[in-house]
């Protein structure tokens, strides 16, 4: 699954650590999601979307 977290993070001038703290996860989790090593749960994906005030589809793209 592709995602644009890095882009949204840059747009909001956030470090991985800051985003992780705000979402209640570890920095390694944000890094793993950004690098495509880990697909977040639906709940975390929703929390991310709400955090950036966008839809899930704006951040995540499911590619076959």
């Amino acid at each position: 699954m592709k995602n644009k977290i890095k882009v949204y993070r840059a747009m909001h001038d956030l470090t991985q650590e800051a985003l992780a703290n705000d979402l209640g996860v570890t920095r390694q989790t944000i890094l793993a999601i950004e690098k495509g090593k880990y697909d977040p749960s639906l709940e975390l994906a929703f929390r991310m979307a709400r955090y950036f005030n966008v839809t899930i589809e704006d951040i995540f793209e499911y590619g076959l």
């Binding site: 992780a20 703290n21 209640g24 996860v25 570890t26 390694q28 989790t29 793993a32 880990y38 977040p40 749960s41 709940e43 975390l44």
Partner: peptide, 10 residues
């Protein structure tokens, strides 16, 4: 510090 999250649980 946050040490457990969904990825670490998985």
């Amino acid at each position: 510090d946050v040490i457990d999250d969904e990825r670490s649980v998985l």
